[in-house]
Simulated assay, not measured.
Amino acid sequence: MAVVVQVNFPMQGPWGAEMAEAFRGLAESINEEPGFIWKVWIEDQSADLSGGIYLFETRENAEAYVRMHTERLAGFGITDVTATFSDVNEQLSTLNHASLG
C-alpha cells in the first residue's frame, strides 16, 4: 500500500527560485531512493519552515528514507525534524485525480 509522508523542519532559507537552484542536486538524488514515487517541496518562509510531502510504494521505503534524511539534516545542524506517515486510500484518491504512480 502506498504511503504519504510529510516532513517538516526549521530552515532559514534559501526560498523559491534560490532554493530550487541550491537543492537541484538533492532533488535529483531523491528520485533514486527505493520505493520513491514523487515529492512536493513545501516552504513557509514566514514561519522559517521547509519540508516535503512524499509518496512511497511502502511504509518500509518511507521509514528508511526518513531515517536517512533526518541523519542528513542533522549533518547540517537541523535536528527538529517531524515526520507523519499515512496510508493512502488509493480508490478514493484516484477518484479525486491523485497521481499515484
Rank of each mutant, 00 (worst) to 15 (best):
H69Y: 12
S29R: 15
S93I: 04
K39I: 07
A98E: 05
T84P: 03
V81S: 11
F85L: 00
A47D: 08
L49M: 12
K39D: 04
R59H: 09
Q91W: 06
M1N: 13
L95D: 09
S99N: 14
A22P: 09
S46P: 06
G77Y: 11
G101D: 08
G35R: 03
R72P: 00
A47M: 12
N89S: 12
G13S: 11
P14Q: 10
I53Y: 06
F76R: 11
E28M: 04
Y65M: 02
G13Y: 14
K39Y: 02
E32G: 13
N96V: 08
S93T: 04
T94A: 11
E63F: 06
G77T: 11
E21W: 10
P10D: 07
R24D: 07
G52N: 04
Q12D: 15
E21C: 11
E32A: 08
E90T: 13
S29I: 06
Y54Q: 03
V3E: 00
E18V: 06
H97G: 12
A64F: 04
P34L: 02
D87N: 14
F23N: 05
L92Y: 09
T79D: 10
Q6C: 08
A83F: 04
D48T: 03
V66W: 07
G25Y: 14
E28I: 13
E71I: 13
A27T: 05
R59S: 02
V66M: 03
L49Y: 01
W15I: 00
A64Y: 01
E90K: 10
T58V: 03
N96W: 11
E21F: 12
I42M: 04
A98C: 01
D44G: 04
W38G: 14
L26M: 10
G101Q: 12
L95T: 06
R24P: 02
P34H: 03
A2W: 05
S86F: 14
M1E: 12
N8Y: 08
L26Y: 15
V5N: 00
E28W: 04
S93D: 09
M68W: 13
R67E: 15
L55K: 07
T79P: 02
A47Q: 07
D44F: 01
E28K: 14
H97W: 15
V66S: 07
V4T: 14
I37V: 10
L49T: 02
E33F: 14
L92D: 09
P10V: 10
L95H: 05
E33N: 07
E18K: 08
T82E: 13
M68V: 07
